[in-house]
Design a protein around this nucleic acid. Structure first.
Lengths: 215, 215
DNA sequence: TAGATTGTTAATCGATTAACAATC
DNA sequence: TAGATTGTTAATCGATTAACAATC
């Protein structure tokens, strides 16, 4: 087991959130045949400023060459490693309502290396049914597979989101993507990210209305 | 036409992003029969600190009563108005691939007052098909309906995201929810929010890996 | 009045940005 | 060497938080 270099700083949350964006831009560059890329070019592709990009990358280490730029393959590798993408991550979708169905059919997870392995629901009427080629299982069966290499995608109704969260945390899951439109509480060491589609629309409504007033 | 009070401050972006969360918590409180709620209670329901909640609300005006709390109905009304939810907002989903299908079937938009009115695609093989009870139309037909009361939900492949963005902006649309995993560029006065599901998983992977290392 | 809770202040914290010395 | 571009600094900006005076 190797330890990180002593100079390694804690990576700010805002930086972590941008690493996947850089990764995608790097892969696009590689696909276009680019071997070396400058912070200016990469920043443009990622939609950020070059100074911010360089600052973000400086938290990972010193992977650029002054006067030249960044080696696309090497930087891709370093960011992937930093993000933990060399580990196997499986996804379990919990809650097979409307949104759960939609997510089960969505191929965007797989294209980035996350395989949707389990569809879970507590309703006996749904357990056993096949959705997007997979059989829906109940919690007792899911319990055998769940561990800290699994990301739980919560697509339950808001009323049961907290109870289901408590269940998956008890199974050892430490990463939760919450689509239920309520905040859930978790113990330390468990990470929750929240996606709320209706909230995004409401934020757009605010700005749209503003733009109208100001015009 | 009424002008805003002279004391009205510009509302910070971080505050705007939390208003929908407060709104939902207020509606839950109303449904539970609560008439008046303290910042402490509302903050707990919304998953924020009470001091932050009070600061957020202070940007809208002075709607609380010292020693008492906030009138649930009144505050609901004020936040709704601030968010522009009294206007009619229609949603057009652009791009009827896997994710577009999923979003068309998702009922979560409607339950918060946004009605999905149009499904749009450029592929002649898809135009005319019925998805989730609606007929898919092409851009020429969509053009007749698009205006600044429409929110465009981009669910196209990454390669065509920018071109489609340019098209909808040209039609007068000023609010875009971008599910395509690339940044799109828009002129001033057009607001883009980005939802990237795979990115969320990658951020969770980072934290999950970290937790493992530290344990 | 006494108790409760808001609205605001001031301090802290974290993120962004431009500029430039370091260096390939 | 000259030109280019990184990595880092320092300044700015915006967001968060605790504390408390104001006041119902």
């Amino acid at each position: 087991m190797q330890s990180a270099p002593a100079t390694r700083r804690e990576i700010p949350g805002a930086t972590v959130a941008r690493l996947p964006v850089y990764l995608r831009a790097l892969r696009a560059a590689a696909a276009a045949g680019t071997d070396v890329i400058s912070s200016e070019e990469l920043a443009r592709a990622a939609g950020v400023r070059s100074s911010g990009l360089r600052k973000d990358l400086s938290f990972l280490g010193s992977y650029g060459v002054r006067g030249v730029g960044y080696d696309v393959e090497h930087l891709t590798e370093e960011i992937s490693r930093e993000l933990g993408l060399h580990r196997e991550w499986s996804v379990a979708i919990i809650g097979m309502g409307n949104l759960g169905h939609a997510l089960a059919a969505y191929s965007g997870f797989a294209t980035r290396g996350f395989s949707v392995r389990w569809l879970v629901d507590s309703d006996p009427a749904i357990i056993g049914r096949t959705i997007a080629g997979k059989t829906v299982i109940g919690f007792p069966q899911f319990e055998q597979f769940a561990d800290d290499g699994v990301i739980a995608v919560l697509a339950t109704p808001p009323a049961s989101a907290q109870a289901v969260t408590d269940q998956v945390v008890a199974l050892g899951i430490r990463s939760i993507l919450n689509f239920a439109p309520v905040p859930v509480h978790v113990p330390d060491g468990v990470e929750v990210r929240k996606v709320d589609l209706a909230t995004e629309l409401q934020i757009l409504a605010f700005h749209g209305q503003r733009a109208g007033v100001e015009a």
